[in-house]
Design a protein around this nucleic acid. Structure first.
Lengths: 286, 286
DNA sequence: ATTTTTGTTTGAAAATGTTTGATCATGCGA
DNA sequence: TCGCATGATCAAACATTTTCAAACAAAAAT
């Protein structure tokens, strides 16, 4: 009973719908509120409370949260639509991506912030799919002079309206990840050269980088082939975990950003492969 | 619905009367005042107070605030329009996707539903950008055996997780519209053949179809070139309105779906061009 | 397996802040 | 000058914030 090693065994078998049943209800309410708001452009607290059969207080707390996310503007007595188009169409319920986004959010956010600072000087930035790269993209909205290339429609949508120009690869859209892939998409990016590529992985061992999806690995390899600086984002839960497909050996990358010191074996392998290992400092909670 | 769950205190009966006094947000009142002002160019305090069912003092305070924002000029007894266009800078730009989505929503929804029914038998469906096509895509979520091709990331995101396979064209992402374009994107779709293409326009005259934006017209032409059946969606507000770019003559299309009988001139031109004109029936309100 | 603990969400009540309408003294325009 | 709009002031109505307790679920402990 004195196990100090807390491996996340319990999280693997836990069904996600049990875990956030309340969350989903609140999430539904938020979606409903936004839908009401879009009908007429404004919304009173009392009307929303009556419509959703909850108390005024609950609506107010919802509005506070939604305002923090930039999805509406709160005014006395209710709320009006946000001036800028936030991320509009992309807020559909996406169980797998959203739940992954919630898992280990703080480490990922720390890695994302560090990676964003690192690439801010580059002009052409290639961005892979994944939750960590998605969080990173939020930091790139105001980046001047940058062109962002990605096969993630989520990242494209997030950066829409921001400063950098965005280019997406064309091709079949994968349902869960909202990423494009296939020969056409890869061929499109094979013709380009990126100053820097940012890749997400699902596992890393001394043998290299791993991913669980066939569809995305080819694109990841293309990013690695066609870019100058190759950055991998990998939170510490992924150390020593293999997945279906090996993307590349460690020697193919330049920088690895993570949130905690890796196991000695991996640290040694990274050093042997001349990979620049960077530990992102934890973010101060706001 | 006479069953009040736990709110006996509040005397708000469910009758959504329009004359709800305190229910109107200050923000909405301001918008209403500005609308009244634009109608005739001037406005008396008494008239506004009567129209909005509030006291004179409230109107005066509103006018003070609106004058501070530069949106009108206060005079003795009321207000007149501001000389210079203060916020018009935002409005004079092409309207945002969200605001266009709100404009004429019901006609667009009717057209979208009719178009969705029309294409449900086809296997490969090309979909243009625009609010009407976006509304139409909502109906395609459950379409079996269909492949949808689009340069709208909004539509791709909307259909994500639905039944049909989605393919997007790759290229530079236009802000707000979230559409891809440019030679790469067009070249990608030039290599394909679609059973049916659904195009949105911003104006239609006897001379043909028109659109706001340079960026999108080339893609629209590609859709028309590379598809068997060519459908145009056009709500009745767009009749006899020209825009920046002419996309194509009327003879290039097969079916036009709109929400009301077009002017005689256009009806004649459509008949001469052998275009199948269809009036979408209004939707029954849910 | 059951109970306790812990954390989260929701609604209710009190305290505080805002908005609104009425009253009245003042000032502008005919 | 007279009439009427205006701005100031205050009370009432309303909205908001804060705080707290109940309900509930997840995690931990027995």
């Amino acid at each position: 009973m004195a196990d100090d090693t807390a491996l996340p065994e319990t999280s693997t078998h836990g069904a996600p719908r049990d875990a956030d049943r309340q969350r989903l209800l609140a999430h539904d309410r938020h979606a409903h509120i936004l839908a009401l708001l879009r009908r007429t452009g404004s919304l009173t607290v009392a009307a929303a409370a009556a419509e959703l059969a909850v108390s005024d207080m609950t609506i107010r707390r919802d509005l506070v949260e939604l305002e923090r996310e930039g999805r509406l503007v709160r005014i006395h007595g209710g709320a009006i639509e946000a001036d800028n188009p936030p991320l509009v169409a992309m807020d559909s319920e996406e169980p797998s991506f959203d739940s992954r986004l919630r898992q280990r959010r703080d480490p990922k956010a720390a890695i994302a912030a560090a990676a964003a600072a690192l690439v801010s000087g580059y002009r052409t930035i290639a961005m892979d799919v994944g939750t960590t790269t998605y969080l990173m993209a939020e930091h790139l909205k105001d980046l001047p002079h940058a062109k962002v290339f990605t096969n993630s429609l989520r990242i494209a949508a997030l950066l829409n309206g921001g400063v950098p120009e965005v280019y997406v690869a064309g091709g079949r859209v994968r349902a869960d990840e909202m990423s494009t892939g296939g020969p056409t998409a890869i061929a499109q990016f094979e013709a380009l050269w990126f100053d820097v590529a940012v890749i997400g992985v699902s596992g890393i061992t001394v043998d290299g980088l791993f991913d669980y999806s066939f569809d995305d690995t080819d694109m990841k390899r293309a990013y690695l082939r066609r870019s100058g600086t190759k950055i991998v984002l990998c939170d510490s839960a992924k150390f020593l975990r293999m997945s279906l497909v090996r993307i590349a050996p460690l020697s193919d990358i330049d920088i690895l950003i993570t949130d905690a010191e890796p196991p000695a074996k991996i640290a040694a392998a990274l050093a042997a492969a001349k990979v620049d290992l960077r530990i992102a400092p934890p973010l101060t909670r706001d």
